[in-house]
């Protein structure tokens, strides 16, 4: 559970740091009147909402990472040989992220046409990524029964949930395309999911074995 514990520890530390700046050491019964610490208008609820949701998604993937590392037994693990396409699919994913970043900046400057085009490109690149993932899954599933191939099983599980999150993102993207706002949030979501997938792919591609070996070394 090292991966998820690290994640949770980081979240809790951030939360405590934030709380410590909210006057939680003051004696509230001595303060009357409208306080200077009124809730700030720093961020719109939708931005905070998306941030919170990304923390949840981060926790979800950290947990699957944890399960993966825990299953890295010395004997029964059969290393997963990832098809080249799994790595190649990173290109459209990065492209999608970049396109949405351009859209977000265009939105801020008020360039509606560039924004529309960039959003379209982002959606297309995402679709290409999903298609590539689908093809990788078919390859993995065709190699034989999944029963004894934990690596392939984990690739299906983690990749599948990641793809579902992206597909959900596409719905939000379509909504944003029809409105004047929302590209910044889409870009943020894509960056986060892209980074998550990079970490997960590294774990699936062999980094997890290293972490597992480290954990065993600590334990024994």
């Amino acid at each position: 559970m090292t991966v998820v514990l690290g994640f949770i520890a980081a979240m809790i530390a951030a939360g405590l740091w934030w709380l410590s700046r909210q006057g939680i050491f003051e004696k509230p019964w001595l303060e009357t009147g409208e306080s200077p610490r009124a809730p700030g208008p720093a961020a719109a609820p939708s931005g905070v909402g998306l941030g919170t949701f990304l923390v949840v998604v981060g926790g979800l993937f950290a947990l699957m990472g944890s399960a993966l590392v825990m299953r890295m037994g010395p004997g029964d693990w059969m290393a997963l040989r990832l098809p080249g396409l799994a790595w190649g699919a990173l290109a459209p994913l990065a492209l999608a992220s970049a396109a949405l970043e351009i859209a977000a900046r265009a939105e801020r400057r008020g360039e509606a046409r560039l924004r529309g085009a960039a959003l379209g490109l982002g959606a297309l690149a995402t679709a290409a990524f999903l298609a590539a993932q689908l093809s990788v899954w078919r390859d993995l599933a065709a190699t034989g029964p999944l029963a004894e191939r934990l690596g392939a099983s984990f690739f299906l599980l983690i990749g599948g949930l990641h793809a579902l999150h992206l597909a959900g993102g596409l719905v939000a993207l379509a909504r944003a395309a029809l409105r004047p706002a929302g590209a910044r949030l889409c870009a943020l979501y894509w960056h986060a999911l892209g980074a998550l997938w990079l970490v997960m792919l590294a774990l699936l591609g062999g980094a997890a074995a290293g972490i597992a070996a480290f954990c065993r070394a600590v334990l024994t």
Partner: peptide, 27 residues
């Protein structure tokens, strides 16, 4: 806040068990 961080663990466990039951994986 705790539930938002903790429920994903049950979510993952349920999805993995569904995989085991339906797709024949061996998580």
């Amino acid at each position: 806040v705790m539930a938002l961080l903790a429920f994903p663990a049950l979510f993952v466990a349920c999805v993995m068990m569904l995989f085991d039951r339906l797709l024949g994986t061996s998580f």
